[in-house]
């Protein structure tokens, strides 16, 4: 285990840990803006809405004679249905409160995803264990290319967050004023959701889709207890996320039975509880 923590468990495990750290940083940073915009749970619907896409992509790739587990293909499918889920939430919000729209989309898409998984299992084309990694995350046995994809995706999200930090903060603080200043709040919200979606897609193999919301939200709310500025909150959240991602992947490499997602989530929760106790629940300032 010590070897995994200090990057000596082989180059592949080291790469996976670094990838998970970058993913954690991206999730923490994006999550900071997401929670400040008060839309934490929409990301949960988004994450669950990836499942039907993953199933359909798996079926399509297997039908074409390829490997159903080909990660980029799965990510395209996941992105497609996640975008559809996001659109469905927006369509429902015209008639229902946002929380109800979120819950309805989450359960429907997830339910259909489960149906797709049973199709795959029944057709006998996928090893039953093949897709379960996307539910709870499995970094053990991850391919080198997958780890690189995760690292690059995390870095790209971090860069985009840095570029958009001012308009994102302005829309989260005062959407009306942002609009007066020529920023389109709806477009900024869409950009934020796209970044969250990128985190979800990249995180599928690390934390799994059920728990990715924790990697977005928990570091952010822990950081919020210490920091009095948006930049400080997002920065610290990214740092906490990176630490939890790195440590979680390393631990999971030492104990391959443990699904990676729950380990990372519990690490982040520990940071949150510690922050809550030390800060007495008070925000900075």
């Amino acid at each position: 285990m010590w070897q995994a923590l200090t990057l000596q468990a082989g180059p592949n495990a080291a790469l996976v840990s670094l990838g998970a750290a970058l993913l954690g940083a991206a999730a923490g940073g994006a999550g900071a803006f997401l929670t400040l915009r008060r839309r934490a749970l929409v990301s949960d619907a988004l994450a669950h809405a990836t499942l039907p896409g993953i199933g359909l992509a798996f079926l399509a790739m297997a039908a074409l004679g390829g490997d159903g587990r080909f990660l980029p293909g799965l990510m395209v499918g996941a992105a497609a249905t996640a975008a559809l889920g996001l659109w469905a939430v927006q369509a429902l919000v015209r008639h229902l409160p946002e929380d109800a729209a979120t819950a309805a989309v989450l359960s429907t898409f997830y339910g259909f995803g489960i149906v797709m998984l049973t199709v795959i299992q029944s057709l006998g084309i996928g090893r039953p264990a093949g897709l379960e990694g996307v539910l709870l995350g499995a970094t053990a046995g991850m391919l080198r290319a997958e780890a690189v994809t995760i690292a690059l995706g995390g870095a790209a999200v971090l860069l985009a967050l840095w570029v958009l930090r001012r308009p994102l903060a302005m829309v989260a603080f005062d959407p009306l004023h942002a609009r007066m200043m020529g920023i389109n709040p709806a477009r900024m919200d869409l950009a934020l959701m796209m970044l969250v979606m990128a985190v979800v897609l990249v995180g599928l193999n690390v934390t799994g889709l059920i728990l990715i919301v924790a990697l977005l939200v928990t570091p952010a709310v822990a950081a919020r207890l210490w920091m009095g500025t948006v930049a400080g909150t997002a920065g610290l959240a990214a740092l906490i996320g990176a630490g939890c991602g790195y440590l979680g992947a390393a631990l999971s490499a030492s104990f391959p039975d443990l699904p990676t997602g729950p380990v990372i989530v519990l690490l982040a929760a520990a940071v949150f509880v510690l922050s809550l106790l030390l800060r007495g629940g008070r925000h900075y300032g």
């Binding site: 400040l36 008060r38 570029v163 958009l164 001012r166 308009p167 903060a169 302005m170 989260a172 603080f173 005062d174 009306l176 004023h177 200043m181 020529g182 920023i183 919020r224 920091m227 009095g228 500025t229 948006v230 400080g232 909150t233 925000h283 900075y284 300032g285």
Partner: peptide
Amino acid sequence: AAVDWGFPVRVIDVVLMGAWRRMGL
């Protein structure tokens, strides 16, 4: 202003938001 008063922002940061058009992305 219909803002979240618990938002992590200092007074000077709020004022600087008025300079967005001059600052840009």
